[in-house]
């Protein structure tokens, strides 16, 4: 069966981003860009399913400027078979991304769509669920285990109280949580091979999707800074401060 994996280009997780001085946006000039860590887990899961013989083809999709090809190539180096770039310089919000993915899913007819549960830039945690609504597919969000069965997939989900397992009819959507797997490193030969794998380019217009943003960011600012407090010398001093100064224990 075919799997569609969505990968997003984001500011690398090691970079601490800051708002621009005028507060209009975050400053992403000259910062390192990478594949979103949750998307990397999604690719890894698809590759493992392929290695198990459950999956026959993995298609990696990304959206945004031309440079998103780099993240598709990363996915191809990890084991995806071909890539699709939905190229646009427009701002893409999750609803628009979900609509583009729906258009691609209509064409490609995957049995499984695997996405990261959220991207580490916008932290929205929306796209997979919205793709579920648009396609009518069931969703297994925040997955920590995925087992494909005959005509269905069993997904164990990380929920507030512990774990929940649901069964979804195929085709279905899975969004990955951190503990689903540990992604491999791409080997040099695979990075070289990835350069020769097919990568098609399309656009929101070609897919018939209106990507006009529905929300406007009025400003961005740093969060209220927390001041470092004092070091205490002993457990006794700590207890004294908590009782008499902070008054949080009796």
């Amino acid at each position: 069966m075919k799997v569609l994996v969505a990968v997003k280009r984001v500011v690398d997780f090691n970079v601490k981003v800051r708002p621009k001085a005028d507060g209009s946006d975050v400053d992403t000039a000259n910062v390192k860009m990478s594949i979103n860590p949750f998307c990397e887990i999604a690719v890894e899961e698809a590759v493992r399913l392929k290695e198990k013989g459950v999956v026959s083809e993995i298609v990696a999709v990304s959206m945004g400027p031309k440079q998103c090809q780099e993240q598709i190539r990363t996915a191809l180096a990890l084991g995806a078979d071909r890539g699709i770039l939905v190229e646009t310089d427009a701002e893409l919000q999750p609803l628009a991304v979900a609509k583009c993915l729906k258009a691609i899913a209509d064409k490609e007819e995957p049995q499984l769509v695997i996405l990261g549960k959220q991207s580490i830039d916008g932290d929205n945690n929306q796209t997979g669920q919205m793709l579920g609504a648009l396609t009518g597919m069931g969703q297994g969000t925040f997955a920590s285990e995925v087992v494909v069965e005959d005509g269905s997939v069993k997904v164990t989900r990380e929920v507030d109280g512990g774990l929940q397992t649901v069964s979804l009819k195929l085709p279905a959507i899975v969004t990955t949580d951190l503990r689903l797997n540990e992604p491999r490193y791409a080997s040099l030969p695979n990075i070289m091979k990835a350069k020769k794998k097919p990568l098609d380019t399309t656009s929101p217009e070609e897919l018939g999707v209106d990507v006009t943003p529905r929300t406007t960011t009025l400003k961005v600012e740093p969060p209220a800074e927390r001041q470092a407090g004092v070091k205490v010398a002993s457990v006794d001093e700590l207890l004294e401060k908590l009782k008499n100064e902070a008054k949080v224990i009796q």
Binding site: A133, Q139, D160, R214
Partner: peptide, 22 residues
């Protein structure tokens, strides 16, 4: 919560709305 985050974006897409998280 995980329940709200799981369900509400699905509602938003059915209503053709871009949700606002968190």
């Amino acid at each position: 919560t995980t329940t709200g985050k799981n369900m509400l974006p699905r509602v938003a897409a059915l209503l053709d709305v871009q949700p606002i998280s968190d």
